[in-house]
Amino acid sequence: MLDYLSARQNILYPYRITPALKLDSNAHARAEALANACGIGDKLDRHPNALSQGEQQRIAICRALVTQPKLILSDEATGNLDPDSKARILELLFEQAAAASASLLAVTHDHELLPRFDRVIDFAQFREGVPA
């Protein structure tokens, strides 16, 4: 998260660093829609230091999804979120993945989430160095 960019600029940042992506009105509309879905639609013009840690995490998630990637890598994406936000973000992640026919690869300690994934690998079985 770049502290000198607003939430909106942070979300749209992938368009700045990827020449293949075109920053047009569709991108802006998608950024606003994602922010609204994450509950931070009214804070798009704020800078990260004026947002809570959870709000910053939601911006990071919006930034990951705004380019409609075919593969979404998620490492404890909901770790800093309250239960309501966590549910909302997870729903958003799954929605986006489905809409873009993308794969969602997530790392989590939250066992409640496991039933929602097509395939689960429990790394606990590798603790001794040999898979069970």
Binding site: L2, D3, Y4, L5, Q9, R16, I17, H47
Partner: peptide, 15 residues
């Protein structure tokens, strides 16, 4: 271009 964008954003915020 990206570098200039970041530079100006940085200058504006951390003036």
């Amino acid at each position: 271009m990206n570098a200039l964008y970041l530079a100006f954003a940085y200058l504006r915020y951390h003036w």
